[in-house]
Design a binder for these strands. Structure first.
Length: 419
RNA sequence: CGGGGUGUCGUAUACCGGUAGUACGUCUGCUUUGGGAGCAGAUAGACGGAGUUCAAUUCUCCGCACCCCGACCA
């Protein structure tokens, strides 16, 4: 995409009332537009980035057998009343209609997915079954905060699985856990798995996936040697400096983290409340064991910004960046440079490399500042050297490292074919 | 929801109980073109309502919005 065509513009300053780093940078760079507290629209760059995150999640969920669906977000009130959620879930948005019918906005989808699964899984032969979707969630938070990290409307992947036995659920949980860890790793993050409290609807243990960041809402204790990690909410007497109870080799450290995913063992609660039974081998009606697996896609985007950004702006890992390359023509008034950069842009785009091409008639300094702010992993600069000696500057956004490469070397490196 | 704070051109800010100023942006013209460049001109603003006052953007109250701390958090 040519940057002269990109309808958003960068800003020098963040709005005074946005203190969260993720919101400041995402707004300044034109990724998001705030509608109200806790509700953001995702603009060109933001939508591309969020889609990349979603695609990583989608690929991993498909790989473990999840089937993607798209559930309604406007819910009938009946299943919510059947499960008790209508009165017990305080963050549930409830809507009155002029027809006097009541609706809910989906804050989670157990009430919707369970009847769907029930319709298509009447037999043990149909289980296990895992269904997921990626879409908007609505929660009537008393206090939205931290930019896009805790909103009233947000993006989430939610998967639900149904099993004939507890053992099968636990087998599947391990598979999901590994997939989640792969997802975070592809997003440039290191996630820790904690045991946490089960929340109001589940007495069973649940797991949270936490990424260390000052912008987080939770405090965790983690081992510096092994993968032991626990949320302080459930840590009991355990405290910082204690010897790790798992490996015994190191002491526990305390840190602030953001929850970027969770897993709940829901047992048979929802199947029971909503009448989902299947027939087992003997023809007896059984309730399936249900698990749910949340992963906040928009929060993940915010956490990536928080964790990787520097004083100049956003730094995206290549896998989630809106573009692979930022092609900057540093000599906008030079006809030769324009032709050279145009040609380079066409070469990359014709080879399906995602390039943002700063073709604007602006000074190089402004372009570099914008490029740093937007945070595309690699910047290619067309300048004097490019015209004179066929050497282009390749700047790594994360490290600042500069390489000088020929056009052919760049094409080789960032496209699947050479010239 | 409890507590605290903030509302001034599109954005960031200044001042002030008496004609609201600056920077960035935007528009026009000229110059400039490797780190947010320069000159000249233009554009555009006091969250809403009530009260105090000769006079309110400024003080008081109510409302609304937003931010922060806490609580909450499938």
């Amino acid at each position: 995409m040519k940057q002269s065509h990109l309808f958003t513009k960068t800003r020098r300053e963040a709005p005074r009332d946005e203190l969260a780093k993720n919101a400041q940078l995402l707004i300044r760079a034109g990724y998001v537009h705030k509608e109200m507290a806790g509700v953001y629209s995702y603009l060109s760059l933001g939508a591309l980035t969020l889609k990349n995150i979603e695609d990583i999640v989608r690929k991993e969920m498909n790989a473990i057998g999840g089937q993607e669906i798209r559930m309604a977000t406007l819910h009938p009130s009946e299943p919510w009343k059947q499960t008790g959620g209508w009165d017990q879930v305080d963050v549930l948005f409830k809507i009155d209609s002029r027809t006097e019918k009541e609706y809910a906005l989906g804050q989670s989808e157990e009430e919707i997915v369970t009847p769907i699964a029930s319709e298509y899984a009447p037999s043990y032969k149909d289980l296990p079954l895992s269904i997921y979707q990626i879409g908007q969630k609505y929660r009537d938070e008393l206090r939205a905060k931290s930019g896009i990290m805790r909103g009233r409307e947000f993006g989430m992947k939610d998967m639900y699985s149904f099993h004939t036995t507890q053992e099968d659920f636990e087998r599947f949980y391990e598979i999901v856990k590994q997939a989640y860890l792969r997802i975070y790793s592809q997003c440039g993050l290191v996630a820790k798995v904690t045991e946490a409290s089960g929340g109001s609807f589940s007495q069973k243990i649940s797991y949270e996936f936490m990424v260390l960041t000052d912008a987080g809402e939770d405090t965790i204790l983690y081992c510096t040697e092994c993968d032991y990690c626990v949320n302080v909410e459930v840590a009991g007497e355990t405290k910082e400096g204690d010897t790790c109870s798992k490996c015994g080799n190191s002491t526990l450290q305390s840190g602030v983290a953001s929850e970027v995913g969770n897993v709940f063992d829901l047992g048979t609660r929802y199947p029971k409340a909503l009448g989902f039974t299947y027939k087992d081998e003997e023809g007896n009606e059984q309730y399936p064991i249900m698990g749910c697996y949340g992963l906040g896609t928009s929060r993940l985007m915010g956490v990536i910004v928080e964790a990787l950004a520097d004083e100049k702006g956003i730094v995206w890992p290549a896998s989630v960046a809106p573009f692979t390359l930022h092609l900057v023509n540093a000599m906008a008034s030079d006809e030769q440079a324009v032709m050279y950069a145009d040609e380079l842009y066409n070469l990359f785009t014709s080879r399906n490399t995602a390039v943002l091409y700063d073709d604007r008639d602006a000074r190089a300094g402004e372009k570099f500042a914008d490029s740093d702010l937007i945070g595309i992993p690699y910047r290619i600069v067309v300048g004097k050297e490019a015209l004179a000696g066929n050497s282009l500057e390749l700047v790594n956004r994360a490290t600042g490292e500069v390489e000088r490469l020929t056009k052919e070397e760049l094409l080789q490196r960032f496209t699947s074919q050479s010239v």
